[in-house]
Design a protein around this nucleic acid. Sequence first.
DNA 1: ATAGGGTTAG
Length: 605
Amino acid sequence: MPSLAPEPRAMASPSRLARAPRPRPTPASSSVAAALLASASALPARRFLQLHAHLLRTGLLALSPSAPAFLSLAAASLPSHRALAVLDHHLTAPPSLPSTFKCNSILRALSDPADALRFLRRMRALGRRGNAFTLAILLTPRCGPAHARQLHANAVAEGHLRDALLATSLMRCYANGGDGDGARKLFDEMPVRDAVAWNVLIASCVRNRRTKDTLKLFEEMRAREGEVQPDDVTCILLLQACTTLGALDFGERVWAYAEERGYGGELKVRNSLIAMYSRCGCVEKAYCVFRKTPQKSVVSWSTMISGLAANGFGEDAISSFEEMIRSDVAPDEQTFTGVLSACSHSGLVDEGFRFFDMMCCEYRLKPNVRHYGCIVDLMGRAGLLDEAYELVTKEMRVAPDATIWRTLLGACRIHGHVDLGECVISHLIELKAQQAGDYVLLLNTYAAVGDWNKVAEVRKLMKEKGIQTTPGCTTVEHNGEVHEFIADDDAHPRKVEIYDKLNEINRHLRIAGYVPNVSSELHDLDSEGKESALTYHSEKLAIAFALLVTPQHRPIRLAKNLRVCVDCHNFTKVFSGIYKRLVIVRDRTRFHHFEGGKCSCNDYW
DNA sequence: ATAGGGTTAG
């Protein structure tokens, strides 16, 4: 580092500075300064002021390669009012009015949109109108739809809308504000649509979970091969869509495409692929890709660890974490989220607490609401319900959100803890966050202890309040087609075969000792009625269908929109043993791997 | 020389 002697008076009097003699810098020293500036993202304010003084003294600041970087650094290092003072000085003082490019660099570095707008006004007052990129920068921070519309109007007035960069920035703002149609309209009006424009549109669909549109757009894009080519980002976005959709086949097609185009080695693409495989229940394949990835980043490790955790491989997740530490990759908050969820899913209570302490003490990471969520889940599953409640109400350093309460409610359901369940519901109501699923959990809690009066009471309450429950739905992917089942479904073209198969399965399972768990049925029917209502839950229909169409050696893969109910869990467990089939069920939160009469998760009985 | 992107509890 060059010596940066402080020169406090230099800052105090800009006019004096303007008169100060400027030695001519050599090209070598100017490139050193540029490199120095480019390498630092932010400095402590005092250190920045020293650097400022030095650059002024040596005249290096007047050279164009270092000036934009310097101004960005100013914005990043100083409190905004001081940064603006520095920027002001360079805007008004000689040697010259900064170029539009310089102004854009400053704008980019201002994190507060209000500062950016003030700066823009000053810029215009000094006669710099800015270009399309200037407007695009203003769209970069998360600006709301109103702001976007305003800048949209400016762009139209100044004739910048033909600029692809500006148009795509606008599209992104509309899409993020939930206005997918607005984004689409801009896209359709673009004279030339580059890959980024397509990607922004695809990202908008992925974000709004319009997965079918996502896949359609990819097809459309590929049909215009002469005009535009999908790039690595396109592949990442598509893999993301497959992850939320659980669309394994399509995901593998995207992967093959990425390899064909030469993106297969890119770390970010590989990380998305690891996530896709994990979230589709193919954790072995995810692990295989992970192993073959040479330069694993903290994201690769975290993705793999959460993937193993979600699939019930808690011990493997923990040994991966230990391996990560040994290979000198520093874990971050997300890594610990994965590790803690591994502990909660596998019932590793002591380890969970140990990792939580490790995170706070050894790695100095501040626990966030997700970390606490895992700990609450961990304690709740282990039956430490009152302790978990204490943690949430007294010890947590962050405000509990609805999910924390819902986690605790799930634990009340597992352990039939009625009193706490009622208390938790009142917290959810207080947060105005109660959902139909929460009342169902409470209802399940009453059902677990056989309090049918209370069950009826909750049902009545739900009816009065007009709370609609989501119907349970199970899907099976077969030959690239998604088959959907709901309870007592008679819509499927092969319904007769399916019901016959299910009756046959039921007979076999009963011989093997499966007893329907009537507490899973919510309706207050007599015992026999309950049993028959249970028989045709969507999951069982889906299993019967899958048994008809999947070859013996392949796993049966189901996806559920709700949690697996206790009876279906038990049913599937016994089924996997009798029929010697691996069944992988993805529910709202994770995967259940059923094999040989057992399940990978430990909280159903 | 500037945009768009990867992991994240239940």
